[in-house]
Nucleic acid binder design. Structure first.
Length: 407
DNA sequence: GGTGCCGGGTT
DNA sequence: AACCCGGCACC
């Protein structure tokens, strides 16, 4: 109880003490190592530099070398960046870190965490991180190609969605970009998918191979531009993922290639088949917003959901939506119910109620009608006569509508 | 007046 | 639910 009451102060003191201790004991190898790693990993955490000596500088070099070495040799190279960004954005839930960790413990263990943790949930073969990375990757390309506000948005939401704050929105991206970003150019021609490292190269490829033009780039009318897209590669893993998913990215970006639509629908499937129920949906969600944005000019999903649904409904029915893409399906379904009443949705509501009325009215009419127009055919009474009343159907016996000779 | 059956009551 | 019946609309 006491601890609980005093916790704020106590914790504060503890932290301070810890911090001092850390800074005070540069001799403790492990600690300083961790510190170094932390530096490597993140610059956001302030580390006391009070005693920066030559020794320490050397340490820097050594640890840096170590880190670099392990980075270059370890196959896990890919994971750390992702992990780190995630860690920074505060979404550690994937790691299953049950407890609230103090900054110190986090930072100290963090260095190793990212190395050991990946094996459990995010080993290279496991779709989780790569997938999410992939899933927003394609979107960013299109968004870069066309729509303005998009670029940052689509990429993060998976992360963003996890911690539910838009503050971290921008954080990871720059970091990722900082990390080895390589721009490649991918041919979008059907069944081609050639990837070249230079725009000129890809243009030439398209011009000669697909467009059948032998002339130089001089006579190019720029048509090639439509047939390739720019893809940015971060690491091997991403590159791999991209190469497999790349058909997707063109879908949004460039109109010409026929495969445009299929890949689009494909992707959600890919996401859906993934064992990860968590990251995949988020990716889908991204898709939705993205598409929504492109299709109409919505405001924000929650509030404008009705709007969106309304417009969507006016333009096509839910069943039709499936033909467009999955992304459309859920919004209408989700929101139509809650619709509050923008003009359009109101109209829709009216329509709906009308149809309902129409549906419900017929019965009345028929009943009224049936009441008036009594069945013409002979009933039990007439058929069997009063004498054989026991042969009547029960309904007739009870003076109810005959069940045996229905009209 | 005969017939079909709804609405309502009784068991 | 099963059974009964008053009463109405229709033929």
């Amino acid at each position: 109880m006491e601890g609980g009451c005093l916790s704020p102060e106590a914790v504060e003191e503890q932290r301070l003490a810890d911090g001092k201790r850390l800074s005070r004991d540069p001799d403790t190898r492990s600690v300083s190592l961790l510190e170094q790693k932390r530096k490597v990993v993140s610059s956001s955490i302030d580390v006391p530099h009070a005693r920066r000596s030559e020794e320490e500088v050397d340490m820097d070099k050594v640890t840096a070398a170590m880190v670099l070495t392990s980075l270059s040799t370890s196959p896990l190279v890919r994971s750390p960046p992702v992990k780190v960004s995630e860690a920074l954005s505060g979404s550690w839930k994937d790691n299953g870190s049950a407890g609230p960790f103090t900054p110190s413990s986090n930072s100290s263990s963090g260095g190793y965490w990212s190395w050991s943790a990946p094996s459990d949930q995010s080993n290279p073969s496991t779709p989780s991180p790569p997938l999410s990375a992939d899933s927003f990757k394609p979107f960013r390309v299109p968004s870069l190609g066309g729509v303005g506000p998009g670029p940052a948005g689509p990429e993060d939401p998976s992360l963003d969605e996890q911690d539910g704050s838009s503050l971290l929105f921008d954080e990871p991206i720059p970091r990722k970009r900082k990390n080895s970003m390589k721009v490649m150019f991918k041919c979008l021609w059907k069944n081609c998918g050639k990837v070249l490292s230079t725009a000129a190269g890809i243009q030439r490829h398209i011009r000669t191979i697909h467009l059948g033009r032998n002339c130089d780039s001089d006579c190019s009318d720029g048509e090639e531009d439509f047939y390739y897209t720019e893809i940015k590669l971060n690491t091997d893993s991403v590159a791999e993922g991209l190469s497999s998913l790349s058909p997707v990215s063109p879908s949004v970006l460039s109109p010409p290639p026929p495969p445009q639509q299929p890949p689009d629908t494909k992707e959600p499937h890919a996401g859906g088949t993934t064992p990860l129920s968590r990251s995949a949906p988020s990716a889908l969600y991204l898709i939705h917003t993205d598409h929504a944005y492109q299709a109409t000019a919505p405001v924000s999903i929650p509030s404008s959901g009705s709007n969106l649904a309304g417009s969507a409904c006016t333009s096509f029915t839910p069943t039709n939506s499936s033909s467009f893409s999955i992304s459309w399906q859920s919004p209408p379904v989700t929101f139509t119910g809650n619709t509050v009443s923008p003009s359009k949705s109101q109209g829709f509501g009216e329509q709906r109620s009308q149809t309902i009325a129409v549906l419900s009215s017929p019965p009345r009419a028929t009943t009224a009608l049936s009441r008036k127009v009594r069945g013409e055919g002979k009933k039990c009474r007439k058929v069997y006569g009063m004498e054989n009343r026991d042969m009547w159907c029960t309904a007739c016996r009870w003076k109810k509508a005959c069940q045996r000779f229905t009209d």
